[in-house]
């Protein structure tokens, strides 16, 4: 059947072209035109909703944008950006990124390896339970966390602290506990998804490798460090990269705990600062400059990722 179809195919077009009144239809149906019609929504959306805003974002960062009055002001937005508030946002975001990456890489690896082994029962149930938080929105989850970590002695978190003999904490009013809230909210939501990435990768570890290691007398830990981990390296880099980029883009986890502003900016993030300046204060040029800096940070991370994964290496392996 395959053969005949290939043979007859070239004859189709001439037959159709013999009907001149259907010229336009044939043109629209020709294999030269059809792909472009299919791709046209992308072209349109790319030009209007990606390319134009990208260029505009850079242009805007050199402007003072007021309604009906746009002035070119050179590098002045960038000179203003590097102020104590921005450094606070940058350091908050960086600490948040480091903490979430460490938590969201190491714990999922351990849990995934255990879930993949034969020594745990009810695996599906556990996997599903860990995945469920990913279905909630940050706003809903954050509201529950706010109530669990309320300032009163009667809220869950402080109750537990009091039971083990510690003082109650004003969770949303200290720098360290504010950071803790954001990190734990994000970790709670993403843990299950990251476990799935590692579980998928673990399916590809060839069993023979474990057997060979066993023959060589490797114990459980040695097998983990010398067989499993090297195999998980690509997926680990991937998970780390999306966590880093997701972390630098963080906004909602902070918004849900403090809405407009946190005491002493303990919850301010880069995107939070961008929103505050660009949208709330309507200083779009300044906001755009923050955006450009964010773009540079994310580009560097992506380049590092490509470099680490060997995308720039020649394929001489």
């Amino acid at each position: 059947m395959l053969e005949t179809s290939k043979n007859t195919n070239p004859d189709i077009a001439p037959i159709k072209n013999k009907k001149p009144n259907k010229g336009l239809l044939n043109f629209l149906n020709s294999k030269k035109v059809v792909p472009y019609i299919f791709v046209s929504p992308f072209i349109l959306s790319f030009l209007v909703l990606s390319l134009y805003p990208s260029i505009q974002a850079i242009i805007m960062s050199f402007q003072r944008v007021l309604p009906g009055e746009i002035t070119f002001i050179g590098l002045r937005n960038y000179e203003r950006v590097f102020n104590p508030t921005f450094y606070k946002a940058l350091s908050n975001t960086t600490i948040y990124v480091i903490l979430t990456v460490v938590i969201l890489v190491t714990i999922p690896i351990i849990l995934a390896v255990l879930l993949d082994s034969k020594v745990v029962k009810f695996k599906t149930l556990f996997r599903t339970s860990l995945f469920l938080p990913a279905l909630t929105s940050v706003i809903v989850a954050g509201m529950v966390f706010r109530l669990m970590f309320a300032e009163t002695d009667t809220a869950v978190a402080n109750q537990i602290l009091n039971w083990v003999g510690l003082e109650s904490v004003d969770w949303r009013y200290n720098a360290w506990s504010g950071m803790f809230l954001m990190v734990i909210l994000a970790s709670w939501r993403w843990m299950g998804v990251n476990i799935l990435y590692f579980l998928a990768a673990l399916q590809n570890v060839p069993n023979e490798l474990y057997e060979a290691a066993e023959i060589d007398g490797a114990n459980v830990l040695q097998k983990f460090f010398y067989v499993t981990l090297p195999f998980l390296k690509p997926v680990t880099i991937f998970v780390a990269t999306i966590s880093i980029i997701g972390g630098f883009r963080m906004f909602e986890e902070s918004f849900v705990f403090w809405t407009a502003g946190s005491p002493g900016n303990i919850g301010l993030t880069i995107v939070g600062y961008l929103y505050q300046q660009g949208i709330q204060q309507n200083d779009m040029g300044f906001g755009a400059a923050i955006g450009v800096i964010l773009m540079i940070i994310i580009f560097i991370i992506t380049l590092i990722q490509l470099f680490v994964t060997g995308a720039f290496k020649r394929g001489d392996e």
């Binding site: 134009y52 974002a57 995107v271 660009g278 964010l294």
Partner: peptide, 9 residues
Amino acid sequence: VPFEILMLP
């Protein structure tokens, strides 16, 4: 390209 960067334009 993160959406946040395109947001203001």
